[in-house]
Design a binder for these strands. Structure first.
Length: 831
DNA sequence: CACGCTCTGCCTGCG
DNA sequence: GCAGAGCGTG
């Protein structure tokens, strides 16, 4: 017999469960678990952002209401009955009328910190939080949401002097850093040919990711000559950055960590402020970012991290998958919740993804499943070369659009390397298919934009030597390398900035010849600095372009540089936008935003065009129909991965997993017999990742519909390729027939794939070319039964759960571990 | 100092 | 195969 208290708590939880009934059980658990460390292992498409956003809203409204054991004084039989009866009320009424009284230590919004990696993700969270509190805009805006970098810059702006930077510091991007590293190497008398700048730069970056100071780095280098050299450059590089009052992207994180570590008062202030800390995409964090989160959440320990170890694809950028793999060891009190139900893709796509990723050893182990149904098979396609491949993509798109089965925006082409974009882009352009290419040169990487920004940067921070050098002779002012060397030398001797040397050039004999131009330049910058105090940003921007002569230079160049002028105008509209969005627009603020905003944010999902991007940049996105060109060993996985170790191959495999799970309803994997790569013709075998997908999931015209390509298909020396460069379709009769089978397929009913299984256990077939086996007899298994699955082999049922009209089995397979499968689709045979 | 030629190296890339 | 960097010449 339950006590009154037990019944009260049960009724309370039942009411919360009902109001949050649109979430699945696991999602609800994640939302309600607010205190103590929490690791949410969120598979692709499992609704992790929903969980993140709803959990934050829950914390603000109800605090620890769900799991709290608190029972108010005076709760009696009649009250409990009332609550139990309330379960029949509509959700809205429960939510507004009853739930608020359960609130337990509800948290003020400004005490919650949510950290993401990209501005895009941060904005999405902000927008969705705003929707959670439609009644007042203030609540959502008080929640501290931002990228690692924006959060750290915000902290550093207030405390930078404690770590040795002056207020108004500048942020150097990769290009500025590279120049500074080159300068540092020059100072150390190290030849760039013996030690490439690129390598040094990345070594320094990796060191900062791991919080290693130049001294630490030197210690670790030991007697290794190369490493010792890099240590010297690292030291000099930091020196140069400090002289310019500049931080690079890695410093932003590392210096914040050092600030919090070494200044207890600052640390304690933030620790007591942040009662709840949430981190998104936790699998992408590096040592420094991990340390930062641990420090910020150190007092209250309410740290929630969301991530997917299977989507960790940024090791090369310093991410340590160990952060997520060992989170529960680092925090023994942590709750771990796996989100495995997928709301994005068909079961076929998920089965393929699951099968591929199952080949990795170092993982937490998740198996995605969906209630959506099987969907169409995965299309595998062999083409002659990259041009045929491109034509195949374009024609498939055109056909589907012509039939009214899809619009351009439904398609995405995802590739391993940016170089692959070229041939496909050409084909789209030729056939007048609207398309967009993401990545490559960013808007803000264009020369004219960088120059204009450099002017603004120098106006904002006169010590910024890199930007000074960038624009002092742009437009031409006859200030060449000679003069600059002299200035740098004097600056070094005097221990002052180069700009102050230029200002006082009259005092230095060595600068006599350029005195007039230098003074002119100094007064240009100084007058712009004065102007910056008086006028709005857009006016300042025009003044920079006019007074510097930069605009005139482009106008004089005529038609050739027209684009650059247009780009500058576009950039100006960005300035106006910034001014509209910020109550107190400042030059520093704008420059900061420019430095911290990437190009991905420019991806406009509403435009009706096929989108092309690398698999890396597609992480987090989804598309109805996905093309994966270049599924070849040597390209994906790349040659350097094949010759490297197993852990590199696992990362590459995770990338394949990310690629596959982007697709909602259809996935086309393409490989070619020959491919022009780095000016050479390569004959690549089909990607091993393709071979890791069970043949039963794949429709493979090249095998004449028999499936079963356990061995490699298209190792590719079969038919007369090479001489026949004609596009497909104009080739021999036999192959056109094959092609007809694949993408000249019969019109497919536009059956929505996301529909639940019919209660009868009937299979949903999307397209009649799907040769699905006869419907499985609805045999009911019990825990302990031995069964056989087509792809997973033999296993034992460990749990049986009715799910609507279907049944969810949890099965431990002998070969592949535990999987959750829906009875309708699992095609289980009793042994 | 600017232009043009040759040479090199080349995966992915947030902020 | 191509872009960007570096070098040499007018």
């Amino acid at each position: 017999m339950q006590t009154i208290e037990e019944r009260y708590l049960a009724a309370k939880r039942a009411l919360f469960d009902k109001v949050y009934g649109t979430l699945n059980e696991r999602q609800r658990e994640a939302v309600f678990t607010v205190n103590n460390p929490l690791l949410v292992l969120a598979g692709a498409g499992s609704g992790k952002t929903t969980v993140l956003v709803r959990r934050i809203a829950f914390i603000i409204r109800y605090g620890n209401a769900y799991f709290s054991e608190y029972v108010p004084y005076g709760v009696d039989e009649s009250r409990v009955r009332e609550l139990e009866r309330a379960l029949d009320l509509p959700v809205r009424e429960i939510e507004s009328g009853i739930l608020p009284e359960f609130a337990n230590q509800a948290c003020q919004p400004y005490r919650i910190l949510a950290i993401t990696f990209t501005n895009k993700a941060a904005n999405e969270i902000k927008e969705r939080l705003a929707k959670m509190f439609p009644e007042d805009g203030a609540t959502a805006s008080e929640i501290w949401t931002g990228t690692f970098h924006s959060v750290c810059v915000r902290i550093l702006r207030l405390h930078c002097e404690k770590v040795g930077y002056r207020p108004g510091f500048t942020i150097y991007d990769t290009d500025d850093s590279k120049k500074t590293v080159a300068a540092a190497m020059k100072r150390c008398n190290i030849d760039e040919k013996l030690l490439p700048v690129k390598g040094v730069m990345s070594a320094i970056s990796r060191a900062k990711d791991r919080l290693l100071t130049p001294d630490d780095f030197a210690m670790e280098a030991g007697s290794d000559f190369r490493q010792k050299q890099i240590a010297r450059v690292y030291e000099a590089y930091q020196q140069l950055l400090r002289e310019s009052n500049a931080l690079d992207f890695d410093d932003i994180i590392m210096q914040t960590v050092l600030l919090l570590k070494n200044h207890p008062a600052v640390r304690e202030a933030y620790q007591s402020r942040f009662k709840y800390v949430c981190v998104d995409e936790f699998q992408d964090t590096n040592v420094a970012q991990m340390q930062l989160t641990v420090l910020l959440s150190g007092l209250h320990q309410n740290l929630m991290v969301v991530g997917d170890d299977d989507q960790s694809i940024y090791k090369f950028r310093g991410a340590t998958i160990e952060n997520i793999l060992t989170f529960d060891k680092t925090f023994p009190s942590a709750t771990v919740i796996k989100l495995e139900q997928n709301y994005r893709s068909t079961q076929t796509i998920l089965d393929a993804a699951n099968a591929v990723i199952a080949h990795n050893a170092g993982r937490k182990g998740k198996t995605l499943w969906t209630a959506a149904g099987e969907g169409e098979k995965i299309h595998l396609r062999l083409c002659d070369d990259q041009n045929t491949e491109a034509r195949f993509v374009v024609d498939t798109v055109n056909r589907a659009v012509a039939r009214g089965e899809a619009t351009y925006r439904d398609f995405a082409v995802l590739y391993r390397t940016n170089a692959q974009a070229q041939s496909i882009e050409k084909a789209f352009a030729r056939s007048a298919v609207p398309y967009r290419v993401l990545g490559g040169t960013r808007f803000t990487d264009r020369k004219e934009i960088r120059d204009a920004v450099a002017y603004l940067q120098l106006v904002n921070n006169h010590d910024d030597n890199v930007r000074l050098e960038r624009i002092i002779n742009e437009p031409r002012r006859k200030i060449g390398a000679k003069t600059l060397d002299a200035i740098a030398q004097i600056a070094e001797e005097q221990g002052c900035s180069r700009f102050s040397v230029i200002e006082r050039c009259a005092s230095f004999g060595a600068l006599e010849r350029s005195r007039a131009t230098l003074e002119g330049f100094a007064s240009l910058i100084n007058s712009l600095s004065e102007l910056a105090q008086k006028v709005t940003l857009d006016v300042l921007f025009d003044a920079v372009l006019d007074r510097s002569g930069y605009r005139q230079m482009l106008i004089d160049a005529g038609e050739e540089e027209k684009d650059r002028l247009d780009n500058l105008e576009e950039f100006k509209s960005g300035i106006l936008e910034y001014m509209k969005e910020n109550d107190e627009p400042t030059l520093t603020g704008f420059l900061e935003e420019t430095a911290l905003v990437a190009d991905v944010d420019r991806y406009d999902e509403s435009a009706d065009a096929v989108v092309m991007m690398t698999i890396h940049s597609a992480k987090g996105l989804e598309f109805p129909i996905v093309f994966l060109p270049g599924m070849e060993d040597g390209l994906f996985p790349g040659m350097q991965t094949i010759t490297a170790g197993e852990s590199e191959m696992e990362e590459e495999r995770r990338l394949a997993y990310v690629a596959i799970t982007r697709a909602k309803k259809a996935l086309y994997m393409i490989h070619t017999r020959t491919r022009l790569l780095y000016g050479q013709t390569a004959y690549n075998p089909v990607s091993r990742f393709v071979s890791e997908i069970p043949a039963s999931l794949v429709e493979n015209p090249d095998e004449d519909g028999h499936g079963g390509f356990g061995s490699r298909v298209g190792s590719g020396f079969g038919g007369g390729f090479g001489r026949q460069t004609s596009v497909w379709g104009a080739r021999g009769a036999e192959s056109s027939v094959t092609q007809k089978k694949t993408y000249y397929s019969e019109p497919r009913p536009r059956t929505p794939i996301r529909q639940t299984a019919p209660p009868s256990g009937e299979r949903i077939t999307v397209g009649k070319n799907l040769s699905t086996p006869k419907a499985t007899p609805k045999e009911i298994f019990a825990p302990g039964d031995r069964v056989r699955h087509l792809t997973f082999g033999e296993g034992e049922i460990i749990s049986v759960k009715p799910m609507g009209a279907d049944t969810l089995y949890e099965i431990v397979f002998d070969r592949v571990g535990t999987k959750k499968l829906m009875a309708t689709y699992a095609r289980l045979k009793k042994l």
